[in-house]
Design a protein around this nucleic acid. Structure first.
Lengths: 129, 129
DNA sequence: TCCTAAATGCGAATGATTATCATTTACATC
DNA sequence: GATGTAAATGATAATCATTCGCATTTAGGA
């Protein structure tokens, strides 16, 4: 009925949002961020699509912070920092993963490795003050 | 009243169990493993003490696997492997963390780092078959 | 316009974890 | 040994993130 956006898909909006931010949002945060633009968005849809994206490798699950899963639309492997005070999740772009890690892990474990997760916890710059 | 073990503390039993195993148990698993020896153990006690141990640095939280937190009584830093098929968590003892990582992360993030977590996901040897 | 499969909204169900509160225990003191 | 006090615990309710079930809507082709 609307002039345009008949083909608009909530799924696309969710993925787009994940790729546009570096806050590593939770499902709830994705929902709240998109709700103003998409008033009839349902939380279940966010969860469903996040699960789908994960399965398809379009987004990754950083880790769970204070019991809540956090997502990342940046699929390029990189290191994370998690602040245990404010639950912020930051990218440490300047810390590349040693290229050998992957292969080492496969050899060492005798398993088929699919993903590598490296993150640090501590107190972030803001919370130190 | 009992002959001995008047001073026996469930807390100690929980810590002892965590240090004796390498299965990286969940709270539920700790509970079920100790229940036969300690019939009046409560799940709440397990959760309470795990939280306490974590705060004191006596145990660490490996990661949450399929929505369940997994614990490790081995405080020496080491690498983990998580099987996405069977949810097993294994130690990769032969993969030491580069000593510089810690310091690098602190410099790179401008934060106070307290812990480092490195783990791989994939399909373990058993599940490959 | 009609049809079908996929996508979604809504709300209930699930399941892990935490909070509450009464009871018990450990241990120091008398 | 009796007593007082703070910590530890058991039992269960409450919480909260996540998933499920199902009816409805949408997209896109016939």
């Amino acid at each position: 009925m609307a002039v345009s956006q008949k083909h608009f898909r909530k799924r696309d909006a969710i993925l787009q949002y994940l790729r546009s931010t570096d806050v590593h949002p939770s499902a709830e945060t994705v929902y709240e961020s998109l709700k103003p633009q998409i008033p009839d968005l349902s939380l279940a849809t966010v969860y469903r699509n996040l699960a789908l994206f994960k399965k398809e490798g379009l987004v990754s699950s950083v880790s769970t912070v204070s019991g809540v899963e956090r997502f990342d639309g940046n699929t390029k492997p990189h290191v994370h920092f998690v602040c245990s005070d404010c639950d912020a999740v930051l990218d440490l772009h300047d810390m590349p993963l040693p290229a050998s890690l992957y292969q080492d892990a496969e050899t060492c474990s005798g398993s088929k490795i699919s993903d590598c997760h490296l993150f640090f916890t501590g107190t972030c710059r803001n919370c130190i003050k």
